[in-house]
Amino acid sequence: MNRILSKDFLSGLMFIGFGLIALYFGQKLALGTPVRMGPGYVPRMLALIMMGLGLLICVVALVAGAEPVEKPKWKPITLVTIGIVCFALLFERAGLLPALIVLILIASLAGEEFKLTEVLGNMVVLAAVCTLVFKVGLGMNISIIRGVW
């Protein structure tokens, strides 16, 4: 069990996985000949070599053992990702201010400490800074609140 859940074994699997993805989605690309290589020649070559390396990493990890993976903490990575995705979805539809508020709120939840007053203060400061720097200063074509400014 320990050997399976080691950093090396799992990263080996990851390389094999990426290789398979590249082979699968690259199968329609023409291979061509070594003289006139098609668009699929180099990707396929790279994918195969990478899978070979991945396999080697797996085997070494199984035989020699390797460092176990630390148990991931799901909260920070999940919340940070959700925060950025929300920002992307809101930015053009609703404007900078709503996107900013949502991102800061969610990203602040990802940390250890969360005090609402502090987070609100952070939002006010950042909103002011971003408006001044990006909208007024650099003159970027963005709306602060869609339809209003």
Binding site: E112, N122, F134, M140
Partner: peptide
């Protein structure tokens, strides 16, 4: 806890720009 959200925000705006 103040810096992390701020940095993320600047990354997002930077990437958009």
């Amino acid at each position: 806890r103040f810096l992390a959200p701020a940095i993320l925000l600047f990354c997002c705006i930077g990437a958009y720009s």
